[in-house]
Amino acid sequence: MNIRQVFAANPEGLLTIFYTAGYPQLDSTVTVARHLEAAGVKLIEIGMPFSDPLADGVAIQHSSEVALRHGMNLDIMFKQVAEITRTTGLTVVLMGYLNQLLTVGAENFLQACRQAGVSGLIIPDLPMDSYAAEYQELFHRYEMAISFLITPRTGEKRIRLADQLSSGFLYLVADNSITGREEGHFSNNQIAYFQRIKEMKLSSPTLIGFGITTADQYFLTKKYANGAIIGSKFIRKLSTTGAVSRQAIAGFIESVTRN
């Protein structure tokens, strides 16, 4: 299923899990995906480890460093992702930085994504105007969806533009912070921001991410958006379990989805 299809098939909302390719072990990427699918997850976001991840908080940054030390690179990652899309029903989105596309050439990169069965990309340092001017046509040609980020400080005009350009989902950054402030609940300001976005009746599906750790929060993201993305908390869970365990992952998903 592509991104829009997976949203259409799950109108009650989606829990999307982010994790870093090659973390905690170089070859754990596929195993983690299988366990996530077994736990009921439909959409996963895989981070492409980068040396200089400007938009990531501490936990994800650290996981990137570990993965790179393990020898993770784009070739290995695409092989692993291809195995995930071949052997599971998961929809896969990749998150990485523009330099990783430019270094192999955007077209080659998109081709590799398509061959590996990737449905979409999130590239936080690719500005919308640059995408529209230089990359949109290429993304369409390779049927690769893109998802843009908006934050509590993004003005209405830019939100409309992000909505119009996003062919995947809109990523609502819950808090204008990347330190992974994890308080377990949303503030009134955050709720007001979610409400404001909801009232804009955007055409793209929306997922709320950054700092989400509890079932209460996940429940609220389904009320105001189409669900949530959990990254840092899951990465930390992986780091403490050592070997990737099916039970631990199922337990984690259960802990953030039960009512």
Binding site: F50, S51, L54, L74
Partner: peptide, 22 residues
């Protein structure tokens, strides 16, 4: 260096074959 992005700017930079900044 080769063309790439570092600290928000498109420029020549030292990187490996996978775009990791060295």
């Amino acid at each position: 260096g080769r063309m790439g992005i570092i600290h928000g700017s498109k420029t020549l930079l030292m990187q490996d074959d996978y775009g990791q900044i060295t």
